Simulated assay, not measured.
Amino acid sequence: MATTNVREITIALRSDGEGLLNSLVDELSRLAQEAVNFMKRTAPKWRSTLTNSIRADKISDFEWDIGPGVEYAPAVEEGRAPGKGLPRWEDPAAADIVQWLATKVFAGRRRARRTSMKAVHENLELRDRYQGLAWHVRHHGIKAHPFAAPTLDMMERSFPARLELAARRYLATTGSGGAA
């Protein structure tokens, strides 16, 4: 247990309280941006829609909302349990999955003209592979790709010490010696 001169610290905090709060608000702003950058580095990058939607919104001086702004972020974070497949091939909700699958199926291949028979065969191949993917998702689910949970772990480990360090730095500059 540390013993300090509580009376002097109380007087110093009363006189420097506003400056100390401003110092903590500034540090919290920097920490929120670091959390956004960390989350962007750990998020999956296909087409970068998820990654580009991650931001920090200031709610109040000491409260920030940090996270992605797309609807499918929880599905990426938590994955999907077996039992439910993908939307049907013709469903517009399947368009993003079809585009992703096309980048995997036709990687390194030159695509055929849309009006040729080769294009028809490519479309049938893509449909068959999509149905195979839907079967796999229905029977095995989708693996989770957590990006928010590691960010939270990092924040819980390092942010309290960083806020304390910011307070000590401010108190050291005001002559309190960082004794609080």
Score class of each variant (00 low, 15 high):
90 E>A: 01
90 E>G: 01
91 D>P: 00
91 D>R: 00
92 P>I: 01
93 A>H: 03
93 A>M: 07
94 A>C: 06
94 A>G: 06
95 A>G: 05
96 D>R: 15
97 I>E: 11
97 I>C: 13
98 V>P: 00
98 V>R: 15
99 Q>D: 15
100 W>I: 09
100 W>S: 11
100 W>N: 12
100 W>Q: 12
102 A>V: 04
103 T>D: 14
106 F>H: 05
106 F>I: 10
108 G>V: 05
110 R>W: 02
110 R>A: 12
110 R>H: 06
111 R>D: 08
113 R>A: 11
114 R>V: 04
115 T>F: 05
117 M>W: 05
117 M>K: 12
118 K>R: 14
118 K>S: 02
120 V>K: 14
121 H>G: 03
121 H>W: 04
121 H>S: 06
122 E>R: 07
122 E>S: 02
122 E>M: 05
122 E>D: 09
124 L>N: 12
124 L>F: 03
124 L>Q: 12
125 E>S: 04
126 L>D: 00
127 R>A: 07
127 R>Q: 14
128 D>C: 01
129 R>H: 09
129 R>M: 10
129 R>Y: 10
130 Y>S: 06
130 Y>A: 07
131 Q>L: 15
131 Q>G: 02
132 G>T: 04
132 G>D: 14
133 L>I: 03
133 L>W: 06
133 L>Y: 04
136 H>M: 07
137 V>R: 06
138 R>F: 12
138 R>Y: 11
138 R>K: 14
139 H>S: 07
140 H>W: 04
140 H>Q: 14
141 G>Y: 05
141 G>A: 06
142 I>Q: 08
144 A>K: 12
145 H>P: 00
146 P>G: 08
147 F>W: 10
147 F>V: 02
147 F>H: 12
149 A>W: 01
149 A>N: 09
149 A>E: 11
151 T>F: 07
151 T>V: 13
152 L>P: 01
152 L>V: 15
154 M>W: 15
156 E>R: 14
158 S>Q: 14
159 F>W: 15
160 P>V: 11
162 R>E: 00
162 R>V: 01
162 R>W: 04
162 R>I: 02
162 R>A: 13
163 L>N: 06
164 E>P: 00
164 E>R: 14
164 E>T: 13
165 L>T: 14
165 L>A: 15
166 A>S: 08
167 A>V: 06
167 A>R: 08
169 R>M: 10
169 R>N: 15
169 R>W: 03
169 R>S: 13
170 Y>N: 05
170 Y>R: 04
171 L>K: 05
172 A>R: 15
173 T>K: 10
175 G>Y: 04
176 S>D: 14
176 S>M: 13
